Lab assay of single mutants.
Amino acid sequence: GATAVSEWTERKTADGKTYYYNNRTLESTWEKPQELK
């Protein structure tokens, strides 16, 4: 079946920190989402 992984995108802030952005829920998080573990 379909997985939720594609909803999350790994992004970088202007100062180079990595965060994760969810295209479906429009939420962002510093922690790696469960779906990516």
Rank of each mutant, 00 (worst) to 15 (best):
G1Y: 09
G1T: 13
G1I: 13
G1Q: 12
G1R: 11
G1S: 13
G1A: 14
G1N: 14
G1E: 11
G1F: 12
G1H: 12
A2K: 14
A2R: 12
A2F: 10
A2C: 15
A2V: 12
A2S: 14
A2E: 14
A2Y: 08
A2N: 12
T3I: 13
T3Y: 06
T3G: 13
T3M: 10
T3K: 12
T3S: 12
A4D: 13
A4T: 13
A4P: 14
A4H: 13
A4Q: 13
A4N: 11
A4S: 13
A4F: 06
A4W: 04
A4M: 12
V5G: 11
V5D: 14
V5N: 13
V5S: 13
V5F: 10
V5P: 13
V5C: 12
V5K: 12
V5H: 13
V5A: 14
S6D: 11
S6M: 10
S6L: 11
S6F: 09
S6Y: 09
S6N: 14
S6A: 11
S6P: 14
E7C: 10
E7W: 04
E7Q: 06
E7T: 03
E7R: 03
E7N: 08
E7Y: 07
E7D: 15
E7G: 08
W8A: 01
W8E: 01
W8R: 01
W8V: 02
W8N: 01
W8F: 02
T9M: 10
T9A: 08
T9G: 06
T9Y: 08
T9I: 14
T9W: 05
T9L: 10
E10I: 06
E10K: 04
E10M: 05
E10S: 03
E10G: 00
E10A: 04
E10Q: 04
E10W: 03
E10V: 07
E10T: 05
E10D: 03
E10N: 01
R11K: 13
R11M: 15
R11W: 06
R11N: 05
R11L: 15
R11C: 15
R11V: 12
R11Q: 09
R11E: 07
K12M: 12
K12D: 03
K12L: 11
K12I: 13
K12E: 08
K12H: 11
K12N: 07
K12P: 02
K12G: 03
K12A: 06
T13M: 05
T13Y: 04
T13K: 02
T13G: 07
T13R: 03
T13E: 04
T13L: 04
T13N: 08
T13W: 03
A14F: 07
A14R: 09
A14W: 07
A14L: 10
A14Q: 11
A14V: 10
A14I: 11
A14Y: 06
A14G: 08
D15Y: 06
D15P: 00
D15A: 09
D15N: 08
D15E: 10
D15G: 07
D15S: 09
D15R: 04
D15L: 06
D15K: 04
G16N: 05
G16D: 04
G16M: 02
G16L: 02
G16V: 00
G16T: 00
K17G: 06
K17A: 07
K17I: 09
K17E: 10
K17N: 08
K17Y: 09
K17F: 07
K17H: 10
K17M: 09
K17S: 07
K17W: 05
K17T: 09
T18G: 03
T18F: 07
T18I: 15
T18A: 05
T18C: 09
T18Y: 06
T18S: 08
T18P: 05
T18D: 04
T18K: 07
T18E: 04
Y19G: 01
Y19E: 06
Y19M: 04
Y19I: 05
Y19F: 10
Y19L: 04
Y19T: 01
Y19H: 03
Y19D: 02
Y19K: 03
Y20E: 01
Y20K: 00
Y20L: 00
Y20D: 01
Y20Q: 00
Y20I: 00
Y20F: 07
Y20W: 15
Y20P: 01
Y20M: 00
Y20G: 00
Y20S: 00
Y20H: 00
Y21Q: 06
Y21P: 01
Y21A: 02
Y21F: 15
Y21M: 04
Y21I: 08
Y21T: 06
Y21N: 01
Y21K: 03
Y21D: 03
Y21L: 04
Y21R: 03
N22V: 00
N22P: 00
N22Y: 01
N22H: 03
N22W: 00
N22G: 00
N22D: 03
N22T: 00
N22S: 02
N22I: 00
N23I: 15
N23K: 10
N23F: 08
N23A: 10
N23H: 12
N23W: 13
N23Q: 10
R24G: 06
R24I: 15
R24P: 01
R24T: 10
R24D: 06
R24L: 13
R24V: 15
R24N: 09
T25I: 02
T25H: 00
T25Q: 01
T25F: 02
T25A: 01
L26M: 15
L26I: 03
L26Q: 15
L26R: 14
L26V: 03
L26Y: 12
L26E: 13
L26H: 15
L26K: 15
E27F: 04
E27L: 05
E27S: 04
E27K: 07
E27I: 05
E27Q: 11
E27T: 06
E27V: 08
E27G: 03
E27R: 04
S28G: 06
S28F: 12
S28P: 03
S28Q: 11
S28W: 15
S28V: 15
S28M: 15
S28T: 15
S28L: 14
T29S: 11
T29Y: 06
T29L: 07
T29R: 14
T29G: 02
T29Q: 13
T29A: 09
T29P: 00
T29N: 04
T29K: 08
T29F: 08
W30M: 08
W30E: 07
W30T: 08
W30I: 06
W30F: 14
W30H: 05
E31Y: 07
E31L: 08
E31N: 07
E31H: 09
E31Q: 08
E31P: 03
E31K: 05
E31V: 10
E31W: 07
E31A: 07
E31D: 12
K32G: 03
K32F: 05
K32V: 13
K32Q: 11
K32Y: 07
K32P: 09
K32S: 05
K32I: 11
K32L: 09
P33G: 02
P33T: 02
P33W: 01
P33I: 02
P33S: 02
P33R: 02
Q34G: 12
Q34E: 15
Q34S: 10
Q34D: 15
Q34F: 11
Q34A: 14
Q34C: 14
Q34M: 13
Q34Y: 10
E35L: 07
E35H: 07
E35R: 04
E35Q: 08
E35P: 05
E35M: 05
E35A: 09
E35G: 08
E35T: 05
L36R: 06
L36Y: 10
L36A: 08
L36M: 11
L36T: 08
L36P: 07
L36C: 13
L36G: 08
L36F: 12
L36N: 09
K37V: 15
K37N: 14
K37A: 14
K37S: 12
K37H: 12
K37M: 15
K37P: 10
K37E: 14
K37D: 14
K37R: 11
